[in-house]
Amino acid sequence: MQGSMINREMKLASQPEDLPEARHFAVVAGPMPVAGPDELLVRNRWFLVSASLRAMIARGAEAVKGVPFPVLRAGDTLAGEALAEVVAAPPGSGFEPGDLVIHFKGWRDYAVIAPAHCRKVDGSLPDPVAYLGHGWTAYAALTRGAGIRPGDTVFVSSGAGAIGSMAGPIARRLGAGRVIGSTSSPQKAARLVAELGYDAAVFRGARSIADQLAEASPDGLDVFLDSVGGEQLQAGLAAARDHARIVILGTLAGQLAAKGTQRRTTVELDSLPLLLKRVTIRGYSADDDPDAWDEWLATFAAWSKAGAIRFPHEIVAGLEQAPEALLRAIRGDTFGAVVARP
């Protein structure tokens, strides 16, 4: 019966050289995948539409060393984090039909996946889609990567993005004294303050980020979570206080540039403040601290039930609509995480 059913997948029609367009993607229908004796068959309920996908699909992506994402070529199915329901599971796998799991084979209706590549979720969150949030990345970066302390002034670049929209509220709950975000427009800057509780927000446009940040935080920064790089990394370093901690989570300034594949984010930094202020800069992935996952879920569940925090996101209905949502995310037209429902 499974083999007679249809499974839709979003394929990469061709690798873009510059920003991707709708023509680079195609929905392809085929037979239902058949699970092997040691595999799960899952039905995707939601999947993330992440601007970082550009780094996976760009022509020449295979030349980048150390990137944790799989490189995709023409004809490949797009990949991304998904929340799925188990349809069939082998005995002794630890999974049962009806279980909800997180895995990395989004952008399709059904997937076959090894149990070791799935993470079962416990149902503790009020809204299941929130399991796809990047709150645990922000939480781990703040608690492990930066070692946030009560009263810290925290700056979050890309504050309206999937990570940043969670990082600001989390920093506040962890005791930050002042939280500042950056974003792409004055409208989104206003939403950071009004909806997410940021104390101030700066945005790309008429004035430099450094000048705006100096006004928003005249006493300097203790913690900077940077997902952008470029001008914003320069500005954050210039505003750093003694013993400030800068945690690099992404390089959107390069990944989302309009021309070329832009897999380099070149920035000129003055090393003298690093020395004089004893500033720490480190690259960080939440995968470095897997213990943060369970701790974050327990914390998130408690905060959510108390109404102290939410999961900012947009939901896109239909697999066919997901590429346009991806292009909107790359342009900076979205707010919070973008989640598609096949």
Score class of each variant (00 low, 15 high):
Pro70Thr: 10
Ile102Tyr: 08
Ile102His: 04
Val101Asn: 03
Ala114His: 12
Pro70Ala: 09
Gly80Cys: 06
Pro97Gly: 05
Pro68Phe: 11
Ala79Arg: 15
Leu78Asn: 00
Gly66Ile: 13
Ala79Phe: 01
Pro91Asp: 15
Ala88Gly: 02
Ala114Trp: 01
Lys65Met: 11
Glu62His: 14
Tyr110Ser: 00
Asp76Glu: 08
Leu100Asn: 10
Pro91Met: 09
Ala63His: 12
Pro70Tyr: 13
Ala111Gln: 00
Ala114Ser: 14
Lys65Asn: 05
Asp99Pro: 06
Phe104Val: 05
Pro90Gln: 02
Phe95Tyr: 15
Glu81Gly: 07
Ala88Ser: 14
Gly92Lys: 08
Leu83Tyr: 09
Ala63Lys: 15
Asp99Asn: 13
Gly94Lys: 15
Val71Gln: 04
Glu96Trp: 01
Lys65Ile: 07
Val67Glu: 12
Ala82Gln: 02
Pro68Gln: 13
Leu100Met: 14
Ile102Phe: 06
Leu72Lys: 03
Asp99Gln: 08
Glu81Cys: 09
Tyr110Ile: 01
Pro91Lys: 11
Tyr110Glu: 04
Leu100Val: 09
Asp109Gly: 10
Glu62Gln: 14
Lys105Ser: 14
Leu78Ala: 01
Leu78Tyr: 02
Leu100Lys: 10
Ile113Ala: 01
Pro90Glu: 02
His103Met: 11
Val86Met: 06
Glu96Tyr: 00
Val67Lys: 12
Ile102Asn: 00
Ala79Ile: 01
Ala89Leu: 02
Gly66Leu: 13
Ala61Val: 02
Asp109Asn: 14
Val112Ala: 08
Ile102Asp: 04
Ala88Val: 09
Pro70Asn: 06
Thr77Tyr: 12
Thr77Arg: 15
Gly66Phe: 13
Gly106Glu: 01
Pro68Lys: 08
Ile113Trp: 00
Glu62Pro: 02
Phe104Ala: 12
Val101Gly: 03
Ala82Cys: 13
Gly80His: 08
Ala79Gln: 13
Lys65Cys: 03
Glu85Ile: 04
Lys65Arg: 15
Ala74Met: 10
Arg73Ser: 15
Phe104Asp: 12
Val112Asn: 05
Glu81Trp: 05
Phe95Leu: 03
Gly80Phe: 10
Ala114Lys: 14
Leu72Asp: 00
Asp109Met: 06
Ser93Ala: 03
Thr77Pro: 13
Glu62Gly: 12
Gly98Asp: 06
Gly106Leu: 05
Ala82Ser: 14
Val87Met: 05
Pro91Cys: 07
Asp76Lys: 11
Gly92Val: 04
Ala74Ser: 15
Leu83Ala: 12
Pro90Met: 02
Gly106Met: 09
Pro68His: 11
Gly98Trp: 14
Gly80Met: 04
Ala88Leu: 07
Lys105Leu: 15
Ala114Phe: 03
Val86Trp: 08
Ala79Trp: 01
Val101Glu: 00
Gly92Ile: 06
Asp109Ala: 07
Val64Glu: 06
His103Gln: 14
Val86Cys: 04
Leu100Gln: 12
Val71Leu: 06
Phe69Leu: 12
Glu81His: 10
Phe69Cys: 02
Ala111Asn: 02
Val67Gly: 02
Ala84Leu: 05
Thr77Ala: 15
Phe95Val: 08
Asp109Glu: 15
Ala84Asn: 03
Leu78Pro: 00
Ala61Tyr: 00
Ala82Trp: 04
Val86Gly: 01
Pro97Tyr: 14
Gly98Met: 12
Ile113Arg: 01
Pro70Glu: 09
Glu96Asp: 10
Val86Gln: 03
Val86Tyr: 05
Leu72Ala: 03
Gly66Asp: 13
